[in-house]
Write a protein that binds this DNA or RNA. Structure first.
Lengths: 176, 176
DNA sequence: CGCGTGATTGAAACCCTTCAAGTTTAGTGG
DNA sequence: CCACTAAACTTGAAGGGTTTCAATCACGCG
């Protein structure tokens, strides 16, 4: 799984901003949605369900874009928190630049390509969540994102995979 | 969850085709991918995993588009079967028309909108699969697609929800 | 050094699956 | 239109993979 193509959605006069590890970039319930292009560092989006449990929706390392397209599309407050897992350097994007009129033909095509890749990733994820056991999920994660595990605490990986930290720990100990 | 916007991706000289219930429109492993705009009827995509189990990826009733964007984006043979659950009237689309050069500005925008909605749906689905119990999943399905249950066999709904037909049957008997 | 966060390990509980049988429904041909 | 057969749904018992809960361990950092 390769990263997103280079910098679509870009507003010519946006500037790079820096945030320290732990900074919350977006809170659940916000209406003015944001999207971020990550230049350096690592960002995560997650939700907290009705039972108070966290679920990691995605990780965004260098060259990825993160945001809540669902909330934007369906015009409701976001379900997603977004925060920095490392000191991060990013570009703030306006999510509604996705399909605005003034965008050039080329920019539209770039955005299309970007969304297409996102759809592809999500399709894989859905099929994975429906068919794979806990240890299969972890194996797939290692294969798709070999460079990520050492940058992310295991309990967050477990959350991304839809299993508990304890289950992941046991899987890892068996695999030796 | 409302249907897709009216007919993007359209090739002016494509024509409507008719298929009988049970017709397979696309087989797993195919390389020349197809996409379909459903005018009337009901179509489904599904995969068969390494253990031989079926998993319904999506249902496409009237005004929806169905295809394997993942396989198209990442240039590999499709994992998805596509077949008709009812007698169906559809328009065959070329999936690589998504971002082709000759498309007009307006068509590109329509396609962007379409993909945006798809991303939104998939995001909801992922979070649902990670956080919801079997009976919560069924409740969400009824809420999002109230018009579908009486057109689809229950074992396929169960498959879409990532649970067994038996589990769904028991949930339904309790909810009385 | 000590505290806090994250990882590990084990036992019990649980939800869902699996397997099997029986029942209902739908489709088809006579 | 009925009879027959296959498909779909239901129901129950047993089993299993994960979760939950709790305790312990490891480690980085002030």
């Amino acid at each position: 799984m390769s990263p997103s193509p280079s910098l679509p959605l870009q507003d010519p006069n946006t500037q790079i901003k820096f945030f320290k590890k732990g900074t919350i970039l977006q809170n659940k319930g916000e209406v003015h949605l944001k999207a971020f292009y990550i230049k350096k560092g690592l960002v995560r989006s997650y939700t907290i369900d009705s039972k108070g449990k966290q679920h990691v929706f995605m990780f965004a390392p260098e060259e990825w874009i993160i945001g809540d397209i669902e909330a934007y599309q369906y015009k409701h407050p976001t379900e997603l928190f977004i925060d920095c897992l490392e000191d991060t350097e990013l570009i703030k994007l306006k999510i509604d630049h996705l399909d605005q009129d003034q965008l050039s033909h080329d920019q539209l095509k770039k955005n299309l390509h970007l969304l297409g890749r996102r759809v592809g990733l999500l399709q894989r994820r859905v099929l994975m969540l429906m068919s794979a056991t806990a240890s299969e999920r972890y194996a797939l994660f290692l294969k798709d994102y070999p460079y990520l595990p050492n940058r992310i605490p295991q309990y967050m990986i477990a959350s991304y995979l839809g299993i508990t930290p304890e289950a992941l720990s046991k899987i890892r100990s068996q695999k030796t």
